[in-house]
Amino acid sequence: MIRSAQSMAREGRRVDEARALLKAQDGNDELKRRYLIAEAQVLREADRTADALVVLDDALREHPDDTDLLYETAMLAERLDRIDLMESRLRRVIELKPDHAHAHNALGYSLADRSLRLDEAEALIVRALELLPDDPFILDSMGWVRFRRGDAKEAVVHLERAYAIRADAEIAAHLGEVLWTLQRQGDANRIFDEALKAHPDNKLLGDTVRRLRGQ
Rank of each mutant, 00 (worst) to 15 (best):
108 G>A: 08
109 Y>K: 03
109 Y>A: 10
109 Y>Q: 06
111 L>Q: 03
111 L>Y: 01
112 A>M: 07
112 A>H: 04
114 R>V: 01
114 R>C: 06
115 S>C: 06
115 S>E: 11
115 S>A: 13
116 L>A: 15
116 L>E: 14
118 L>D: 03
118 L>Y: 01
120 E>G: 11
120 E>P: 13
120 E>R: 14
121 A>R: 02
122 E>C: 08
122 E>L: 10
122 E>K: 12
122 E>I: 07
123 A>E: 13
123 A>Y: 06
123 A>H: 11
123 A>N: 15
125 I>S: 04
125 I>Q: 02
126 V>S: 07
126 V>Q: 12
128 A>F: 00
128 A>T: 05
129 L>A: 14
129 L>K: 13
129 L>H: 11
131 L>M: 07
131 L>G: 01
131 L>A: 01
131 L>R: 00
132 L>S: 15
133 P>N: 06
133 P>W: 01
134 D>P: 11
134 D>F: 10
135 D>I: 07
135 D>L: 04
135 D>T: 08
135 D>N: 14
136 P>I: 03
136 P>V: 07
137 F>T: 12
137 F>Q: 09
137 F>H: 12
138 I>Y: 00
138 I>F: 02
138 I>A: 00
140 D>G: 09
141 S>T: 06
141 S>G: 12
142 M>N: 03
142 M>F: 06
142 M>K: 02
142 M>G: 02
143 G>P: 05
144 W>S: 11
145 V>G: 03
146 R>P: 03
146 R>F: 09
146 R>D: 11
147 F>Y: 15
147 F>T: 01
147 F>A: 15
147 F>P: 01
148 R>W: 00
148 R>D: 01
148 R>T: 04
149 R>T: 08
150 G>R: 13
151 D>E: 14
152 A>T: 08
152 A>C: 09
152 A>V: 02
152 A>D: 12
153 K>P: 06
153 K>H: 13
154 E>F: 07
154 E>Y: 09
155 A>K: 03
155 A>E: 08
155 A>T: 02
155 A>V: 02
155 A>F: 01
157 V>K: 14
157 V>G: 11
158 H>Y: 15
158 H>I: 00
158 H>G: 04
159 L>V: 11
159 L>A: 11
160 E>R: 15
161 R>T: 09
161 R>W: 05
161 R>Q: 13
161 R>C: 04
161 R>M: 08
162 A>K: 07
162 A>C: 09
163 Y>E: 12
163 Y>P: 08
163 Y>A: 08
166 R>L: 10
166 R>I: 07
168 D>Q: 09
168 D>G: 12
168 D>E: 12
169 A>T: 03
169 A>M: 02
169 A>I: 05
170 E>A: 13
170 E>G: 05
170 E>K: 11
170 E>H: 13
171 I>Q: 03
171 I>E: 04
171 I>W: 00
172 A>P: 13
172 A>H: 05
172 A>T: 07
172 A>E: 10
172 A>Q: 09
173 A>K: 00
174 H>V: 06
175 L>D: 02
176 G>M: 04
176 G>Y: 00
176 G>W: 00
177 E>L: 14
178 V>H: 00
178 V>M: 05
178 V>A: 05
179 L>Y: 02
179 L>H: 05
